[in-house]
């Protein structure tokens, strides 16, 4: 397997606060990799570093063999990196259709029609404003939007946040579907059992450092470790163990 994303020893800051202390992660072609950790462990910062929104001050990031460490966000997206930000970040004053037209469409299998076919609720509500959608619909829109870039790598930051269990299952089905389509996925989740159940590999971050790196299935078995490291969402593991 070849790594399509490789972050090596990245150090990222917000102003003067040092958030990531040398994080190294890899995503291989066709893999679902999950990034776990407590609130404030640096998961979102890692993703913001990868997307170019908060570039690291030290270390290097390579995506599809290109050194993107200091590229602006739009160039990284233009390589075929889709990003579903934390909190969905739907453009509330734009319609569903307009939200889908923001990303400059790259040629590929994902067309507007195909995306709308995958998300029939969005097709029904295409003329509604983003802010009029339910949380689940907004999440679907947040996932649908970067698909129009025809990405080869998707970065998802807590797609299940604040959603009803039924919708969460739907979101996870879409993530699996992406892999079937040949996309690689990096997934941040608070809900560790959920993301470990669909991921191939997992990283656990704590205090801006990688403290676990291994197969998702192995981590899922070690409920003590999950409890200790992955925080809130791990309760379910304890109950089921």
């Amino acid at each position: 397997m070849t790594a399509i994303l490789r972050a090596a020893d990245i150090h990222t800051f917000y102003g003067k606060s040092h958030i990531l202390h040398g994080v190294s992660i890899e995503v291989n072609e066709g893999e679902i990799v999950t990034l776990l950790g407590r609130n404030g462990a640096g998961k979102t910062t890692t993703m913001r570093s990868l997307t170019g929104l908060t570039p690291p001050r030290q270390g290097t990031i390579e995506i599809f063999g290109k050194n993107t460490t200091h590229w602006p966000a739009h160039r990284i997206a233009g390589l075929g990196v889709g990003y579903v930000p934390e909190g969905r970040k739907i453009f509330g004053s734009l319609t569903v259709l307009e939200n889908l037209k923001v990303p400059p469409a790259r040629p590929g299998a994902w067309t507007l029609d195909r995306v709308l076919a995958l998300f029939p609720r969005l097709a029904e509500r295409r003329s509604q404003l983003g802010r009029q959608l339910s949380g689940g619909e907004q999440e679907m829109l947040a996932i649908a939007r970067p698909l129009l870039l025809n990405p080869r790598l998707m970065l998802l930051d807590e797609p299940s946040q604040g959603l009803a269990p039924l919708i969460v299952r739907e979101v996870m089905a879409v993530v699996r579907r992406m892999r079937e389509d040949g996309l690689s996925v990096l997934l941040i989740e608070q809900n560790a059992p959920l993301s470990l159940s669909i991921a191939d590999r997992a990283y656990v971050l704590d205090d801006g450092r990688v403290v676990y790196d291994g197969r998702a299935a192995d981590l899922a078995k070690d409920s003590d470790l999950v409890n200790k490291l992955a925080g809130a969402g791990s309760k379910a593991v304890r109950q089921s163990a």
């Binding site: 170019g52 929104l53 966000a73 997206a77 233009g78 970040k89 990303p103």
Partner: peptide, 25 residues
């Protein structure tokens, strides 16, 4: 127009607009 849609999107959330591949510069 696409340009107009992106201007409106950028007005609301410049960062997300950039992360979706729009050259905000």
């Amino acid at each position: 127009t696409l340009l107009g849609i992106r201007i409106r999107a950028g007005t609301r959330d410049l960062e997300t607009t950039a992360a979706l591949g729009v050259n905000i510069y």
